[in-house]
Structures are given as structure tokens and as C-alpha cells.
């Protein structure tokens, strides 16, 4: 346990020194502030624009940051020989994977909290009240970050940084299309095609569930039990991804 903590802390400290983190934060912050400037142009939707842009910024920039930071770090450690010397110590490969995962996830959480705080400030500047739905929307963005980080960890175990990023972004895109996959499956009246598309629907992460932006913007009630169900779904899905990552990583040679 202490090995995982030490590795996670080391990963977090390394990421916090990266310039890309600052760039993403500044860019995201500027975009949020721009929504305040743009809002008078959005007739009848001044506050809506600020909420929409803010929530979308938090989600998009978090995913971008996870992909940019996470994809290369695994390989850099391998290239610099850090990975080999780490594994020579009493640190298991499972500890390494989990340490990396929690370090990356911690950075994502810090970015989400900072950007969400800025978003709330911009909203208060616009005279809007902060609703519980907005806070829950930020919470599910943290869940989304947990899942995307696990996807990246999995792909980093067996591919190059470029392919790892590509597969992660591909899964994120497909994850937002998953509801359409189910509709698509309905077009086939049984048979192998129906079974294959339905299987894809259940295998891919359903990222549409990890968005409460509509509820936050229009102050709609969140269905009872949804938050708990979504949290459990993310925890279980992430655990499965990390388990597969450790299985793959244990089977691989580290040169």
C-alpha cells in the first residue's frame, strides 16, 4: 500500500512540474472567462452560455490533459530505465500500475477542482446561483476522469504513446456514441450482427451516463439512485480495466 502511495505521489509531483498542465489550466480558464464576455451576445441564454461553456471546458480539458500527460509518461520511464530500476526494488508490477493510475487521477482531480472553482466564480460574477446539480455535474466529471485514466493506463501497457492516446480518444468518442450503438443494434432482427453490436454496447464505457450537463443547465432533477449507480458503474469498470492492465503488464518483458 505504501509503495502505491509513494509511486502515486511521485507521479503527481512529476506531472505538477510539467508546463503542459499550466498551459491547459490557463487556456481553460481563459475560455471560461471568454464565456462571460460572450454571454451578452447570446440573447435569452446569457447564464446558460456561461454554464455550458464552463462545464464543457472542465470535461474536455481534463480528458485532453489526461491523454497528453499520461500517454508518454509510462514510456518515458521505460526509456530512461526508471521502470527497470523501480521493478528491481520490492515494488510489484501491480503497485506500479496502481501508483501510476492514482497519480494521474490525482492530477485530473486537482485540475477539475481548480477549473470548477473558476467556473463557479465566473457564474457568481454573472449573478447566477450555484445549484446542487452543477456540483453533481462536476462530480461526474471526476468519475469520467477516473474512467479515462484507467483506459489510458490499459493502453499504455501494451502500445506506443501515440497509439495509446489514439485508442483512448477513440474509446471516449465511442463511449459518447454508445446509446446510438444500442439503437443501431435494434435495426438488426436478431442474428450475429445484433449480438455483436449489443456486445460492443455493453463492453464500451457508457460516457453518456457520466454527463449531468443538461440537468445542471436547466436545473432538472437527477433521477433518484442515478448518482450511486453511476458511481458504482465507474468503480467497477475502472477496477476491471486496471485488473486487465496488471495482467497485461505482468506478462510483458521490461527491457
Amino acid at each position: 500500500m505504501s509503495a502505491i502511495y509513494t509511486l502515486a505521489r511521485h507521479t503527481l509531483r512529476t506531472y505538477l512540474q510539467e508546463k503542459i498542465l499550466l498551459v491547459v489550466l490557463v487556456f481553460g480558464g481563459l475560455l471560461m472567462l471568454s464565456s462571460y464576455v460572450l454571454s451578452p451576445l447570446a440573447v435569452g441564454a446569457q447564464i446558460k452560455i456561461v454554464i455550458d461553456i464552463g462545464l464543457a471546458c472542465v470535461s474536455i480539458f481534463t480528458v485532453v490533459l489526461i491523454v497528453l500527460l499520461g500517454a508518454s509518461s509510462f514510456h518515458l520511464e521505460k526509456e530512461r530505465g526508471i521502470l527497470r530500476s523501480l521493478l528491481a526494488k520490492p515494488i510489484s508490477r501491480v503497485d506500479f500500475i496502481l501508483g501510476k493510475y492514482f497519480g494521474t487521477f490525482a492530477v485530473a482531480c486537482i485540475v477539475i477542482v481548480l477549473m470548477a472553482a473558476l467556473h463557479m466564480m465566473v457564474l457568481m460574477l454573472c449573478g447566477s446561483k450555484i445549484t446542487s446539480q452543477m456540483l453533481w455535474a462536476e462530480y461526474v466529471t471526476i468519475l469520467e476522469a477516473a474512467l479515462v485514466t484507467a483506459l489510458l493506463t490499459l493502453f499504455s501497457c501494451f502500445t506506443s504513446p501515440v497509439l495509446g492516446s489514439f485508442f483512448t480518444v477513440g474509446c471516449v468518442v465511442c463511449g459518447h456514441f454508445s446509446d446510438d450503438l444500442l439503437q443501431f443494434a435494434g435495426r438488426f432482427s436478431g442474428g450475429a450482427a445484433h449480438a455483436a453490436v449489443t456486445a460492443f454496447y455493453y463492453v464500451l464505457p457508457n460516457l453518456g451516463l457520466l454527463s449531468l450537463r443538461s440537468e445542471a443547465v436547466h436545473d432538472l432533477a437527477i433521477p433518484p439512485g442515478m448518482l450511486f449507480a453511476v458511481t458504482m458503474y465507474t468503480v467497477v469498470y475502472t477496477s476491471v480495466l486496471l485488473y486487465v492492465s496488471t495482467v497485461i503488464f505482468r506478462a510483458r518483458e521490461v527491457s
Binding site: V43, A45, I53, A56, S59, I60, H176, R213
Partner: peptide, 12 residues
């Protein structure tokens, strides 16, 4: 890609 509220704002 799930950011349809934002897309709606842009079209608006």
C-alpha cells in the same frame, strides 16, 4: 460527442 448543449449555444 455529448456536448450538445454547447453545440446548441453555437447554433443559437
Amino acid at each position: 460527442l455529448g456536448y450538445h448543449e454547447l453545440a446548441s449555444d453555437m447554433v443559437w
